[in-house]
């Protein structure tokens, strides 16, 4: 990890778009196929973690990620509340679908930022040496 490997950095650079695509596929298809917000978010977090293996520098902005996680958490709480209490009539198929996809998306982004924060806190700030 100290001396950077040319092969690993180039191959992970090639793999980033595919990992991102796979993560968003898992999140957005979570209501119909296996997967969902949690698994897709973990795949998205793997992008940041492999980035640490390639170049371990501290230029990642943890504070932004923390505020993003808090905002997403508030959204995750508020959106179902609004969805439940906005209309008293039966929900149509389309609104249910959009609700599921949006919730999966929010949960996926929150899990991604949470995993990234946990990993970088551990890698940079814990241990004391």
């Amino acid at each position: 990890m100290i001396d950077r490997s040319e092969i690993i950095s180039r191959m992970t650079g090639l793999l980033y778009p595919f990992i991102l695509l796979f993560g968003f596929y898992i999140i957005l298809n979570g209501h119909a196929s296996p997967g969902g917000g949690f698994q897709g978010g973990a795949v998205l977090a793997a992008v940041f973690i492999t980035r640490y293996l390639v170049e371990p520098d501290r230029c990642i902005r943890l504070k932004t990620l923390k505020t993003a996680e808090k905002v997403l958490f508030i959204c995750i709480i508020l959106y179902p509340a609004f969805f439940l209490f906005s209309t008293t009539a039966n929900h149509s198929e389309l609104t249910n679908l959009t609700y599921l996809i949006a919730m999966n998306f929010l949960i996926g982004l929150k899990v991604c930022s949470g995993f990234t924060i946990i990993f970088f806190r551990f890698a940079f700030y814990e241990g004391g040496i």
Binding site: P34, Q39, A46
Partner: peptide
Amino acid sequence: PDVAIAEAI
């Protein structure tokens, strides 16, 4: 398959 994805990741 759900558990399998989570376990693999």
